[in-house]
Nucleic acid binder design. Structure first.
Lengths: 339, 339
DNA sequence: AGTCCAAGGGCAATCGATTGCCGAGCAAGA
DNA sequence: TCTTGCTCGGCAATCGATTGCCCTTGGACT
């Protein structure tokens, strides 16, 4: 605390050389006579010199810092994404600024501006809203390397990494059909973001393609939460005429649906099959264990950071890349037809 | 990207004044003639000037950044803690460096050093290990404001914020006794950290005090995970002689115990009562809903940041504060005696 | 021995904002 | 009118590390 930190000059003085030399030894940016190098290293060690990354950042024009903006860290899916990004950054010796936009495009825009001011080397963002987030994302992307993760808004020349939601829905519906499902409902959020929309469209398309019947009032909108899923489940399962399956746009919703089914005495999977999305850790611990789509977050993180690195090196305007990883269906008891 | 960012000098040139004046207008550090102020503001707006926080940090010797090191962001309890800290920081206009030590004291030490080099204004850390983390925490605390959150190691003159684990255990045991429990087991982790130890000691003490019988082989060590809780549950519930209650050191363990009970046909709460700790969001969604101890994470975050602020202002060596908030028992079906 | 060249140490500028100090200008009081 | 003092703009130093350029030194080759 009181310990004024040691600077390069201190080391230089103790070693009896110039600051330049010390800098060169420590950053290995140019060869230095072995004897001098040893002296410098000894001096640095003795003083416990560790460098001032602020000064270095100012001079080098890079901070070795990446900013990440997510809609809600409390949603376990984004937690997994944050974890994957943090791990990957740690290996590169970089650090993460974590920002939670709380589902609010304005907070999101504020954070993006703040990250620019902080001169982060790059930004990873999962935009809150397909429309309301666009302007800020576009503006930010024009000033610093940026990659969208999971959700995206349409902005020219911007990279995106996520999973192929259409393919995921194809797997889900095909699996349900193979297990005897003829009618299905779909529960999602009313957020107007890309993955929400893609999953909905995908479900519609593949249900139709594979002959699974739906009804307009079997499409229920809420938000990504257990409570919302529970409400939807109650609504869908209260009448006489209930679907063979309820497909959910994420696991939290599915958990709520399972809860509703249990309360209402609807047997899962015998009478009703339920699927989720994200394959949260909890998916295997609910009752019955939930069939879900696994998102390969480590690979998504790797890919996102790779794209950032490319943009950090080549400052010229690059065309946008869209990397859609193919997700995997994890089958568990919530959809297995017994016997 | 290509857009070289505007500097203070650019604004000064456009406004026809000196850099000092621009700086004073924008930071309101000294009054400036209204007419000039207006000119400067117009110039800044026109250029879209937004400042370089790296340069400012170098000069001001503060970064408006706080570092946080947690054992695992994937554990929902720490996620909640991170969320609370992030919210509180956002209100202050600060940003969070998030670091995950992965339960590894060495990674933890590395991150602490890194945060020092990054010149963060303060550090919030939940140490991995009661012994192995101590040296790094002590060293770090001597160089920058630091507060321990949830877990702690014993280091002189260092602040800590957490809940009163002993009080929590007192509430748990008293509640169980009131619901007819005469014998109880305790499942925890083998991590040698403070909260693990305090909860164990607290359980022992209050069980004895309130006449709840225990046995040495009813103390099961594993780690903080559903799997570990499941294994412990299977072990405790397989024989003939099972306890009236299983007290768990966190909710994840309790979830696993509940799962085991269900598989083995042990009725909860009628035959067995189960309690958790942390009151995770999921606690109310498992079956049966789990009785747990609520940790007031928003208040913990507030308190931690308050302590940091104090140390940031008064550079002199302060005595360490220990703030133990009193937790609340949330009673749900997993312990309610029917009828 | 003389010439050339490479290696490597040091000087000083630089990154961009903040701030102590100087002094010009103006108002108020005697 | 002269003095005193206050307000506020600007100069230049500063935070700490990096790096372009110069210059010394010494080895190699003729």
């Amino acid at each position: 605390m009181a310990v004024a930190s040691v600077t390069l000059s201190d080391v230089a003085r103790l070693a009896g050389v110039s600051k330049s030399t010390v800098s060169r030894v420590l950053s290995q940016s140019r060869p230095v006579t072995p004897a001098i190098e040893a002296t410098v290293r000894r001096a640095a060690a003795e003083l416990g010199y560790s460098g001032n990354s602020i000064a270095r950042a100012l001079r080098r024009q890079r901070t070795d810092t990446v900013g990440m903006v997510v809609p809600s860290i409390l949603n376990p899916f984004f937690t997994a994404l944050v974890d994957s990004i943090e791990r990957a950054l740690h290996e590169e010796g970089r650090v993460l600024f974590l920002c939670d936009s709380r589902q609010d495009p304005e907070i999101e825009a504020g954070y993006l501006r703040l990250l620019i001011d902080r001169k982060v080397d790059g930004i990873v963002v999962s935009p809150v809203d397909g429309e309301l987030s666009r302007a800020a994302i576009a503006e930010t992307a024009s000033q610093t390397p940026l990659v969208q993760l999971d959700r995206r808004v349409n902005v020219e020349n911007t990279d995106w990494v996520g999973v192929d939601d259409d393919d995921a829905m194809s797997q889900v519906v095909a699996h349900l059909v193979a297990n005897g499902v003829r009618t299905a409902a779909f529960v999602t959020s009313d957020f107007t973001n890309s993955s929400t929309r893609d999953r909905l469209d995908g479900f519609r398309r593949h249900a139709k393609r594979l002959g699974v019947a739906t009804r307009e009032d079997w499409f229920v909108l809420g938000d990504y939460s257990v409570e919302s899923g529970h409400a939807a489940g109650v609504r869908l399962l209260s009448g006489e005429d209930i679907p063979d399956a309820i497909v959910c746009a994420d696991d939290l919703i599915a958990f709520g649906v399972l809860q509703a089914a249990r309360e209402l005495g609807v047997a899962v999977p015998d009478r009703l099959k339920v699927t989720g999305f994200d394959n949260l850790v909890f998916a295997e611990h609910v009752i019955p264990p939930l069939t879900s789509i696994e998102q390969p977050t480590p690979q998504m993180a790797e890919e996102a950071l790779r794209l950032l690195r490319v943009r950090m090196q080549r400052k010229d305007r690059l065309p946008g890349a869209r990397v859609a990883l193919v997700p995997r269906l994890i089958v568990r008891d919530s959809t297995r037809s017994r016997g």
